[in-house]
Design a protein around this nucleic acid. Structure first.
Length: 552
RNA sequence: GCGCCCGUAGCUCAGCUGGAUAGAGCAACGGACUUCUAAUCCGUAGGUCGCACGUUCGAAUCGUGCCGGGCGUACCA
């Protein structure tokens, strides 16, 4: 990676300055090497002189001059070094360095952009985790794509990723679900029934009940327990959910259920341990967790006076199990409505002797669905919501993935159905895919015209001197760095922005320059560039789970 | 009330953890297909970065206080 190599050179320069008492080493690790905003500011820029000047109380431009003197003598990589603005040192890289990048891409192919910097660390990504009370909603869709994007990034950077889906099958929600199914079942067989006040009203409840009538006939009419209804609902709904997820290309290594935490005694043992540590007490018939002793504002109920635990308790037990299962890093993807559980879980595992800093929580904001310029209001219980399945029917998998991933998690996501449905033009999904298809088309043309596809060895890469070509090379060269930083920050949306930018550069280039021409030497060089682009577009698209069509 | 997130072009959003002249896409307007796919390109226009102080060589970015929106603040998950 070119930036990394340059950073090493700049670091050497810094250390040499320290050795010769030009400056102290107080600025070590404080300065950066970055890509500047404007084109006339070189390929990379370091703020070392500015940082040093702040510490040493010296004139930044004077220090910059010293930095320049040192870098000037470096033969490797560097074409030109200059001082700019308040004291930036701008470095221009030799064109040949960019051109040689194509060899690297050619060698690495599918693995260009991948790295092993994760060191095979075992990381669990927990996401979706929707309770099986109904079809996946739009909000779950965002989470599914976000979590999957994060998982893919971590895989690409050498982490050992385990995807897990956690669901609550023990609580009140599922009981209400079972009661809702029972009511519909009784209704269908013509018995008296009372629909629960806060029951689930969706049409899918009838479907489940209808199935029960088919398989069980009237045998459940006088059944005391809701369990058969609950189980039937859970089974059917889960089938639906996993079908939907598969449609989006998402699979899990494991589904973990709350019930098992009770069956295996994990919940009890959490209570016991916390009690032993004096962090639990009884009040008003409920059991409380002394979170105030762990830095929070108030204590929290972990077992209700009814005897049922609150969500906190199994959540803590579950996270302790994650630690016990020997993961090095726990990534939780939650909707922002679940934010309240985060401090409780952290406090809980911390109290149980685990290092909560190994948990990273990615919270994402809500999705608002827009149709005809107006917001579509939704509620799961009332069942007037658009499911992920319906969305996929309407806009397709690629558009759904693209739109869900396009925004940073902190922002509310406005999903414009009209825009995503549009088959063309304004729809940004096609912009990137079209770039890939175009690249593939050029390759096809070359083959048809009998132009042998060159390897980087038998092309003169020094012919790639057009500004658009060098610009493309630079963008292609930053791909591996980008993937690493996206993975580290758990931000798949930036991959989308990168690809859009690369596509923009390519489309401009395409409109201005001909790849296959009478000049066979030039054609060969440009075909190498095109072939590199195909690799980067293909790798990038696949990395975020989008298809890379060869024709459109 | 308190906690977290958001506020940047008419709309939807970037802005790489404090840098150099504020960036895209869409919408608007004007151009480019006998030439590797026009699902594309080129150009024009569009801004008190919510407001006000503060921190410093330098702030959209950091701090404080307001304003506006979202989500929490359950013996719901």
């Amino acid at each position: 990676m070119i930036r990394t190599r340059l950073k090493e050179i700049v670091d050497d320069c810094f250390r040499a300055g320290v050795r010769e008492n030009q400056w102290s080493d107080a600025a070590a690790d404080k300065y950066t090497v970055e890509v500047p905003k404007h084109e006339n500011q070189g390929d990379f820029s370091t703020n070392m002189a500015l940082v040093l000047a702040g510490i040493e109380k010296k004139n930044p431009r004077e220090i910059a001059a010293q930095v320049v003197e040192r870098l000037k003598n470096v033969q490797e990589l560097i074409e030109r070094v200059e001082i700019a603005g308040p004291g930036f040192v701008n470095v221009t890289i030799k064109e040949s360095v960019w051109q040689q990048l194509l060899k690297e891409i050619d060698d690495q192919q599918e693995s260009y952009g991948r790295s092993d910097f994760g060191g095979n660390r075992r990381v669990m990504v927990e996401f979706v985790s929707a309770n099986p009370t109904g079809p996946l909603s739009i909000g779950h869709g965002r989470q599914a794509i976000l979590g999957d994007g994060i998982a893919r990034l971590l895989e690409a950077t050498g982490h050992d990723v385990y995807r897990e889906y956690y669901y609550n099958d023990a609580g009140r929600q599922m009981r209400v679900l079972g009661e809702s199914v029972r009511a519909r079942y009784l209704e269908l067989i013509g018995r008296d029934h009372e629909f629960p006040e806060d029951g689930y009203q969706g049409e899918y409840i009838y479907d489940i009940a209808r199935k029960l009538v088919e398989t069980e006939d009237q045998s459940l009419a006088d059944c005391e327990s809701v369990d058969p209804f609950k189980q039937a609902a859970e089974r059917t709904i889960f089938e639906d959910i996993s079908t939907t997820l598969k449609r989006m290309g998402i699979t899990f290594d494991n589904y973990y259920n709350e019930q098992s935490l009770y069956e295996n005694g994990h919940v009890d043992s959490v209570i016991k341990e916390l009690t032993d540590k004096g962090l639990v007490y009884e009040k008003d018939g409920a059991t409380w967790f002394k979170t105030t002793e762990l830095g929070q504002e108030k204590d929290r109920v972990i077992i209700k006076s009814s005897g049922e635990p609150t969500y906190r308790l199994p959540d803590i037990a579950y996270h302790r199990e994650k630690f016990r299962r020997n993961f090095d890093w726990l990534v939780d993807i939650f909707g922002s409505d679940h934010i309240a559980t985060v401090p409780d879980v952290r406090a809980g595992v911390e109290a149980l002797g685990y290092d909560s800093s190994k948990i990273t929580v990615v919270l994402h904001q809500f999705v608002t669905l827009m149709r005809d310029g107006k917001q579509v209001k939704m509620s799961t219980r009332k069942a007037n919501f658009i499911t992920v399945d319906e969305l996929l029917d309407e806009v397709g998998v690629d558009a759904a993935r693209f739109f869900f991933m396009m925004r940073k998690p902190d922002s509310q996501l406005e999903f414009d159905l009209d825009l995503a449905t549009k088959e063309s033009q304004e729809n940004p999904v096609y912009y990137v895919q079209y770039a890939h298809a175009r690249v593939c088309s050029i390759v096809r043309q070359a083959v048809e015209k009998g132009v042998a596809l060159p390897t980087t060895a038998d092309a003169d890469l020094s012919l790639l001197v057009e500004p658009e070509e060098v610009g493309l090379l630079k963008q292609m060269g930053s791909f591996p760095t980008l993937i690493e930083s996206c993975a580290m920050d758990l931000e798949p949306y930036r991959v989308i922005f990168y690809l859009m930018e690369l596509a923009g550069l390519f489309h401009s280039y395409y409109n201005k320059h001909k790849v296959i021409s009478d000049d066979s030497a030039l054609s060969r060089s440009r075909l190498c560039l095109i072939s590199g682009l195909r690799t980067v577009f293909g790798n990038g698209l696949k990395l975020v789970g989008l298809s890379a069509p060869e024709k459109m």
